[in-house]
């Protein structure tokens, strides 16, 4: 939780971008397979195969749980359907028309981590649901735009919070974004709420996983008995978008957009 963020050299950032490229490809492959009737375990298999075919390691497999007595994470992706905010375990759940599914995935390539997520509509969704996806994606965009050298973590937080709350949705506070690099979770924490100008200063070479999690209803979280699956307390829908972003003198670099 504490400690300083490691600043990466331009070469190291390129290595992380290569990792992010594999990840973006895996997410594209999963996205192409999302359709009514598909099981979330099938999506997990697609991601695993793509990552291994491209020389990477799925980093979510075997991540130890934050709570005691909970098994390590069993999948390469988190498949978070409808009211699941994050960390849904892929399994026998079958997607139906009108569902939304958050796909969160991570890759290790040559020792460098990347972490990214998107929330997809399964066939047609209601206009309100579509608006949730749009606002959450816009919040991620605003966060990336605020990730400028010399500014603060709190500027990212405030950008997300303002975007989301202006549209009447709520920000999940139980989970936060994080520094990323040689391991998946590094300092600093990147909350999706809080005042601009607060927190550590953003320095060129910092790499952050920025990930707004947005609920339609209350912001509170409840956990399933598996210890991982985090749901909205009131059963309302939740969306999650994430990119791994590097701070540079030339503005934010998105490392997981496939470029």
């Amino acid at each position: 939780m504490s400690g300083k963020a490691e600043l990466k050299t331009p070469e190291q950032l390129e290595a992380m971008r290569a990792s992010g490229r594999v990840l973006a490809g895996a997410l594209d492959a999963v996205e192409a397979a999302v359709a009514p009737g598909v099981r979330t375990s099938e999506l997990d298999a697609i991601a695993q195969e793509y990552i291994r075919d491209h020389g990477g390691i799925p980093s979510f497999l075997g991540v130890p749980a934050a709570a005691a007595g909970v098994e390590p994470f069993p999948g390469a992706i988190c498949a978070s359907v409808n009211d699941v905010i994050v960390h849904g375990i892929p399994g026998g759940e079958v997607l139906t028309v009108g569902d939304i599914i958050g796909i969160d995935c991570g890759v290790i390539l040559d020792g460098w981590h990347s972490d990214s997520a998107r929330t997809l509509a399964v066939a047609d969704v209601s206009p309100e649901t579509f608006r949730l996806l749009q606002v959450t994606q816009a919040a991620l965009g605003a966060a990336i735009a605020a990730a400028l050298a010399g500014r603060h973590i709190g500027d990212i937080s405030a950008a997300v919070q303002t975007t989301v709350e202006e549209d009447g949705f709520t920000i999940v506070r139980r989970f936060v974004g994080h520094g990323i690099g040689r391991t998946m979770h590094e300092p600093p924490q990147v909350p999706n709420f809080g005042p601009a100008g607060s927190g550590p200063v953003l320095a060129p070479g910092m790499t952050l996983a920025v990930e707004p999690m947005v609920n339609v209803g209350a912001a509170d979280v409840q956990f399933d008995d598996d210890g991982w699956t985090a749901r909205t307390i009131d059963g309302s829908l939740s969306a999650h978008f994430e990119h791994t972003v590097a701070i540079s003198d030339d503005g934010p670099l998105v490392l997981t957009d496939g470029s």
């Binding site: 939780m1 979510f60 991540v63 934050a66 994470f73 988190c78 994050v86 960390h87 969160d104 991570g106 972490d115 506070r173 139980r174 989970f175 936060v176 974004g177 994080h178 998946m184 979770h185 924490q189 909350p191 990930e211 999690m213 999650h240 994430e242």
Partner: peptide, 8 residues
Amino acid sequence: MARQRGRR
């Protein structure tokens, strides 16, 4: 994968 925040 999101990180769980410390307990306030």
